[in-house]
Design a protein around this nucleic acid. Structure first.
Lengths: 353, 353
DNA sequence: AGTTAGCACTCCTGTCCCGCGAGTGCTAAA
DNA sequence: TTTAGCACTCGCGGGACAGGAGTGCTAACT
């Protein structure tokens, strides 16, 4: 089926390009006639048919049935994105809106929620924003607030300004003063370590006997361990916005396809996996169809990019939509948004420091 | 069409009852024949047809088209629920699971999230749990934690144990000690008032000039106002779980109906309105079809009940599903869950006090 | 008077068929 | 190398049709 080195001459490339663009616009299969009539080629349908037959042989196109036009395959899209696509830059207006919305919010959770909504709004696809658990990030401070006889709220601030809080129930009694001291101690002592490292270090401390004699230290350790132990608040943050948008796409007119799609989006773990994998590498990532690793659904694409500072990426933003999406618009959108986010976060950090 | 006082004899009631039960089970329109064959009546189809014609005249039944069986109307369901339904009590096992799950979690947000998931799981409908903004509830304490040069986290605990936190950006600088003092002051001074009352009182204080001379008091006031001013964290909490469940319902086989339904569920304000209206009255509330006030969709029902202590209801739990749902099972489910939640919350309060 | 059998009528549903249109592949000519 | 022509395939929509399900009505039966 697939030749090893499909060298495409420039005409074939142009034809593939045009087919994909038209298919993205219309959602229909593209025939040799419509292609001939579009004006970009001075060729008869018959000639175009020959080219199309070649492209099909290379695996870039497929026909849904004999008497239908051609539709791009995963491979076709891949080639298009790698070699043929000309990204449309964002309009001034779009950029301004993004900057404004991102700049407006100030808590990071708020910023991320806004970001996912922005993605959804501008793309009319599902917008996702992902921020992995704080466990892997260094902390800047830790404070404890008494909110009941035996309940203490622990407020943890990461070096990147992320704030997490968690409520712990304790058997021991703490006064406000004690909590104040404990917070101060931990903040100073463990500043810059990750929650995971802190936990390990605290556990090691329990083994050292000298800790046993210092009542205050012992309280600190036990409370500290409670606070950083694995639990709900330290889950990944995942914002999925606008799943309804896909209801409008013509390719999901029938209920069965819809069902599968929704179930796939429900499968958060998969999504987290995918978005996490986008963290390791810089630059825009585009996953097409079967490349996405969704188990149930193979006609979805993801356009994503990590955000955060170069040295310490914080998470991933992206959009999810049917394979047939306007990559030329999605790519710069995701790209710009991730940069806007990164900039915002860096600003925050500077203003803090 | 509708007679003013539809006195139904016991046979008509039984027929209506059976029709609704069968329709709930099968989703199909019920014909006189199937009804006759079911064994509960020693009547021929023809006789049943007479009864059914009456029931239709009263507006309890309707036929989708001439040669179809009958389907209950909103009014039919309403009558069924008010007069004919025999609630099935929960199994021992179900009750245990609910108690366990509710008892397990300890932060209130966690409890509520669990509750909505439970509702979804046991009903296979959409589970909703609603807790209105803290603004209307009295507070127990307020604390401030420094989490950056100019950022302060404010931790507010309601009398019912609800914890809310909000980050405020300030122009002024605060030391930890100052924050400590401010928190203590506000907690003692405004204990038992609602956020709204506190805000008003603080604003009144700014007008009294004597406050202007006390630097510390002034700082307290300005920070306090910032902290309780209207913003995101004081939004209603609304947990909607399992929207996917409705994808399985046969009545939403076609994509258009699905679309409308999802959009309706998206309309959070409406939902909040409805659930809020369930707060004023105690006891189980069942809203059928058009009674729900959803603008777009009229074939939905809501079974809901408020939870919290008798004197101070805290929120609403409920399920949303197609009109054709097993009310006999849903009613006790929602009822029991709301009681379990209330019990849990009261326990918490006692153990705190 | 209530019940029921019988019958005519309506309307939905699935199926088969048919023709149309759109597209293709191939071949042969320009 | 391009293109016109032609045969072939396939999906789609519409019409016809039979079957089935259900009803309403009437008249007879208990």
């Amino acid at each position: 089926m697939q030749k090893p080195l499909p060298e495409l001459d420039s005409r074939a490339r142009e034809v593939l390009r045009e087919i994909i663009i038209q298919h993205i616009a219309s959602g229909e299969a593209i025939s040799s006639r419509t292609l001939s009539r579009c004006g970009r080629f001075d060729l008869s349908p018959a000639s175009l048919r020959n080219v199309m037959a070649d492209l099909e042989e290379f695996g870039y196109l497929a026909q849904p049935h004999t008497s239908a036009g051609r539709v791009p395959t995963d491979r076709g899209y891949r080639f298009f994105i790698d070699n043929l696509m000309r990204s449309r830059t964002l309009t001034q207006r779009e950029r301004e809106t993004i900057d404004e919305e991102v700049g407006h919010a100030n808590e990071i959770e708020d910023v991320l929620a806004h970001a996912s909504r922005l993605l959804n709004r501008f793309s009319d696809q599902v917008g996702v924003v992902f921020m992995p658990t704080l466990l892997q990030f260094a902390i800047r401070s830790m404070d404890f607030v008494l909110i009941g006889e035996s309940r203490i709220m622990c407020v943890i601030v990461g070096v990147n300004g992320v704030v997490v809080n968690k409520i712990v129930e304790t058997r021991q009694q703490f006064t406000r003063d004690e909590l104040e001291k404990i917070g101060r101690y931990i903040t100073i002592e463990f500043n810059g370590l990750t929650l995971d490292q802190i936990r390990r270090r605290l556990i090691r401390m329990t083994e050292q006997e000298r800790a046993m004699h210092d009542d205050m230290l012992q309280k600190t350790i036990s409370l500290g361990i409670e606070a950083v132990s694995d639990v709900a608040p330290f889950e990944h943050d995942l914002y999925v916005e606008g799943a309804v948008s896909i209801l409008n796409k013509p390719e999901y007119a029938d209920a069965h396809a819809l069902r599968k799609t929704f179930l796939a989006l429900q499968e958060k773990e998969k999504l987290v996996d995918i978005l996490e994998s986008c963290l390791i590498e810089d630059g825009l990532q585009i996953l097409i169809g079967s490349e996405t690793d969704f188990t149930q659904v193979h006609n979805f694409s993801i356009v994503a990019r990590r955000y955060g500072s170069q040295a310490a990426p914080l998470g991933t933003v992206g959009i999810i939509g049917p394979m047939r999406m306007e990559y030329a618009r999605m790519a710069p959108l995701v790209d710009y948004l991730s940069r806007a986010l990164s900039r915002k976060i860096e600003e925050e950090e500077e203003s803090e420091a």
